[in-house]
Amino acid sequence: MTAVMAPPVKPAPPPVKRVRRGGGIAPPWLFAAPALLVYALVMLYPSIVGAGSAFTDWSGVGEQRSFVGFDNFQELVHDDQALGALRNTLLLTLAIVVVQNGLGLLLALGVHTTIKSRMVLRVIFFAPVVVSPVMVSFLWKYVYNPAPDAGLNAALNAVGLGALRQDWLGDPSLAIWSVAFTVIWQCAGYSMVIFLAGLEGVPKELHESAMVDGAGTVARFRHITWPLLAPAVTINVMLSTVGGLTLFTQIIAMTNGGPGYATDTLSTVLYKQAFVFGKFGYSTAVALVLAIFVAAVSFLQIGYLRSRETTA
């Protein structure tokens, strides 16, 4: 009988030890250092120094300032204008998140087909995104001209819908929705592109096998496309939420927060407090609260959406 000899076990090579001479810094940090430095200089340092102003009564100019503790934060809690602005901010954010992403998804589904003009349509829908928000705002200000023979009102007249003419930016009840529409018009293409990238990642085989099983368009969207779009939904909802909560440019350019306080958001309030009212300390307190609020909302949102991705 021949004894079968077990092959000699080859000892595993010892783990490679990263050698650092003289306490050097790992290369990833070296590569990241320039960007981190710029970030620290441009973002972190001014933010930390600025946050200190929230506890002072600094006017924004000159050297005079006194420490006032939490007075600015107490004032914020009782400030009707800031509370109204918070309400407007939340309304705008909700409208933008829901409608912009809904529209973006519809556009993405529309151009993710085999129609011949899909590439042209993608460019057309994305085009507003590359235009400066200030430019877009000024253009829409012309569109929203309240005169019956100008802009949107003239167009409504021309198609026999003259009864729907409005003072789009001058009516306190309507102005905020006019601004929201402009933002959605500009940014829906951005959501579309992210959804489109998500759609490109959905395997065709899944759709084909579902079709063999007799699944219709709606069923395939509900059970295949939508769950697999979860990462794109996370990104879109996150970006539009942060964008909505910090919306500033379009409001300043179109309504300056008016009529009255009808379109003021937390961003416009902190801007006005700093540069119009000369209350830089209070403005910084508003900014600090806004930053914490945005961070908290984003944190909660990303936690929920990530868990949804895992489930999907």
């Binding site: 490679v16 030890k17 990263r18 050698v19 650092r20 001479r21 003289g22 306490g23 050097g24 810094i25 790992a26 290369p27 070296l30 250092a33 320039p34 430095l37 200089l41």
Partner: peptide
Amino acid sequence: ASEIIRPQVSRRRLLQLMGGVAVAG
């Protein structure tokens, strides 16, 4: 390979460089 990618810049040197850039900025 570990030798090839071994850092040639010490922590002290990197901080000096960063400090220099910061001051210049």
